[in-house]
Simulated scan of single mutants.
Amino acid sequence: MDAALNRGLADLACRIEAARVLREHHLWEAAAALPLTGASGSPGRASSRFAGLMAANALVDSVLLLLDRAEPKRSVRSMRRSGGRWTCVIERAPGNAGDRFTARHADLPAAVLAAFIRSCAPARERSGAVQGRHPTEFSAS
């Protein structure tokens, strides 16, 4: 990933953390930054499916579609609610064992998208505060 894309994802992650709930524009921005290029189906078909899910306000399903299309492959390890906050843990495919990424948020779609974005960040940006930004609740496990 190039530096501008990394900064864009870091900015998006900060805006998601600060938002009370995930908004459609957050997902559209993530979809634009992380193209639907995975192996399951054609990019055009995935884009149409994504647009349909967004039109139906199926935000969690929209995030999961982005996750499904990501390379390297990732999967949701857990989603749980405790103390009024959702915790989502995403891990990379078995070939990248040990790469787990956690995000916490009051809104489930926001927690899932934040963990996914966290999994896309270079290692140097996963260690606490993102360059010049406030610390977030993102962590690599």
Results as ranks from 00 to 15, higher is better:
2 D>Q: 08
4 A>N: 07
6 N>I: 14
11 D>Y: 06
14 C>I: 02
14 C>F: 06
15 R>D: 13
16 I>Y: 01
18 A>C: 09
20 R>A: 11
21 V>P: 00
25 H>M: 06
30 A>N: 02
30 A>K: 03
31 A>C: 09
31 A>Q: 07
31 A>T: 08
32 A>C: 08
32 A>N: 12
33 A>W: 01
33 A>L: 12
33 A>R: 00
36 L>A: 10
39 A>W: 15
42 S>G: 12
44 G>T: 12
44 G>Q: 15
45 R>I: 12
46 A>C: 13
48 S>D: 11
49 R>N: 14
50 F>D: 04
53 L>C: 03
61 D>G: 10
61 D>F: 11
61 D>M: 07
62 S>W: 04
63 V>N: 04
69 R>S: 14
70 A>W: 04
72 P>R: 09
72 P>L: 09
73 K>P: 02
74 R>T: 07
75 S>L: 10
75 S>G: 12
76 V>A: 06
76 V>Q: 08
79 M>T: 13
80 R>N: 12
80 R>Q: 13
85 R>A: 05
86 W>S: 05
87 T>W: 02
92 R>D: 09
96 N>W: 13
96 N>D: 14
100 R>D: 11
101 F>M: 09
102 T>C: 13
103 A>G: 04
107 D>R: 05
108 L>G: 04
113 L>E: 01
114 A>P: 00
116 F>D: 02
119 S>W: 00
122 P>G: 08
123 A>T: 10
123 A>S: 13
123 A>I: 09
125 E>H: 15
127 S>F: 09
130 V>K: 11
130 V>Y: 01
132 G>F: 15
132 G>Y: 15
134 H>K: 14
135 P>A: 01
136 T>R: 03
138 F>N: 00
138 F>V: 01
139 S>D: 05
